[in-house]
Design a protein around this nucleic acid. Structure first.
Length: 461
DNA sequence: GTTCTATTCCT
DNA sequence: GGAATAGAA
């Protein structure tokens, strides 16, 4: 009868390179538990797409534990309360968890540490957020110097193998996963998701292998939406089915420009955590005030934005590249990174809608929705962020579409346009535009001028 | 050693 | 505009 050790899982649903699980397994029998805590996250409760992914990821985690004759315990409610309750129920010696930096998780970690022996480990980032500092000891705000400094500290630690596990004498009760209703019910919007993704640790490792074969072409292919050039690791990384250190380690053999650029993308993940550690409300509030109320169109000032917002959400703006991106998001819960920038820029500048509406939509629709990444990337496009002010740089969606060769991408996700020739696909004229595809919601030149004059006006009359 | 300032650059 | 750094004061 040795006291069991609880491993509190969150977005770290893996056996390998999982420092909390690894440490707990050294100590004694292990009970892995996941708590669904919508209340603690408040308005940052997981969106629909993330919940779809979570369902399958929890299933996969239970399967992996099953290979060791173990299982995953599920509980629902306030995470700190539920973990404390479970610890008491099972007479656990300690609770082990990977440290997370979203404000609600920091709060829950603090509450739990007051009540029991909570052992926290770093493991979901290449370097523990807050540890890379400027010459004067402050945390970085700007990506480039951050990444330069971080690169010099890497690699930091060894990748851990999956530990061998001992089971407790008795398993505590567990919720039934299906009872959580994480999957869609009435309209089944997830059929595209099922075709696009394999969820879980095994699938994540396979995806890494697949990407390792393609990383040499990453430099060019990552910007071409119709090519399978990006890693597609983001949802696996977000849910912690694979650790960034495993990815870094696997790619260290690759020396080319592509691998170097991709390592920069992994460091971007670390960077966004550093930003939200310094500014916990960053994903919900502009860091730099560009004129606030005056800049964006606002129902309080008589602007009707609901229709434009809806057209953007549904992929009916009349700009094929934007519409393809938004429909890809709806169909598979993910959007190509290049297109994310084009679509975000379009909402903010062409439609002059507050970036936070876009951030919310992405939060709900992305299987890789991540508090730090989503917030930092939206503020980057909006020009309201910690880095330079990008607002006056207005992307031209039509030339972006041509430049990055998005023709086949548009054909895939905007089927009305599938038959258009290359010279019409990016910007169909009235003769070629099918009846069921909308005309442009606003002309590019007109939108550009509206945005720039609103910007000048908001800045200082 | 500490503060000031010039310079460079911002996924 | 302001963050980061390096070199001056």
């Amino acid at each position: 009868m040795t006291a069991p050790h609880i491993v509190w899982l969150r977005r770290d649903l893996r056996l390998a390179d999982q420092p909390a699980l690894y440490a707990a397994a050294q100590e004694g029998p292990v009970i892995c538990v996941y708590v669904l805590d919508d209340e603690g996250a408040g308005n940052r409760a997981m969106g629909g797409a993330s919940r779809w992914w979570l369902h399958h990821s929890l299933q996969a985690m239970d399967r992996e534990l099953g290979k060791h004759q173990g299982k995953l315990i599920l509980r629902r409610g306030n995470a700190a309360d539920e973990i404390a309750k479970l610890a008491e129920e099972t007479g656990a010696a300690a609770v082990h968890a990977i440290r997370h930096y979203e404000p609600w998780w920091r709060k829950a970690q603090g509450r739990l540490a007051d009540r029991l022996d909570l052992k926290l480990y770093d493991g979901n980032y290449l370097l523990p957020p807050g540890t890379v500092t400027t010459g004067s000891g402050d945390p970085y705000k700007i990506y480039t110097p951050f990444a330069k400094s971080a690169r010099q500290c890497l690699p930091q630690r060894e990748v851990l193998d999956a530990p061998s596990l001992t089971n407790p004498d008795e398993w505590p009760d567990s919720d039934d996963l299906d009872g959580w209703n994480l999957l869609p019910t009435k309209p089944d919007w997830a059929s595209g998701f099922r075709d696009a993704w394999e969820v879980g640790e095994t699938a994540a490792m396979a995806q890494l292998e697949d990407f390792a074969d393609r990383v040499k072409d990453y430099e060019d292919d990552r910007n071409r939406p119709s090519i399978d050039g990006s890693s597609r690791l983001s949802p696996h990384l977000h849910h912690g089915e694979i650790s960034p250190m495993q990815v870094w380690d696997r790619l260290t053999r690759h020396t080319g420009e592509g691998a170097e650029t991709f390592r920069g993308e992994l460091l971007w993940r670390d960077y966004t955590q550093n930003v939200i550690c310094q500014f916990p409300a960053y994903p919900s509030e502009s860091y730099r005030d560009l004129g606030g109320e005056k800049l964006w169109r606002n129902p309080n000032r008589g602007h009707v934005i609901a229709e434009d917002l809806e057209a953007w959400q549904q992929g009916r703006t009349g700009y094929p590249i934007v519409d393809a991106g938004m429909r890809q998001l709806w169909q598979i819960g993910w959007m190509h990174n290049r297109v994310r920038m084009i679509a975000a820029s379009f909402l903010i500048k062409h439609l002059l809608i507050d970036w936070r509406h876009g951030e919310q939509w992405f939060w709900d629709c992305l299987v890789d929705a991540d508090y730090g990444n989503n917030g930092v990337n939206w503020q980057w496009v909006a020009g309201t962020g910690v880095d330079s002010n990008m607002f006056p740089r207005i992307m031209a969606p039509l030339s972006q579409s041509e430049k990055f060769d998005a023709g086949d991408y548009i054909r895939e996700f905007v089927p009305e346009l599938a038959d258009l020739p290359d010279d019409q696909i990016h910007d169909p004229d009235d003769k070629h535009r099918p009846d069921d595809y909308p005309a442009k919601i606003i002309g590019h030149r007109e939108a550009r001028e509206r945005a720039l004059s609103a910007y000048r006006e908001a800045k200082g009359e």
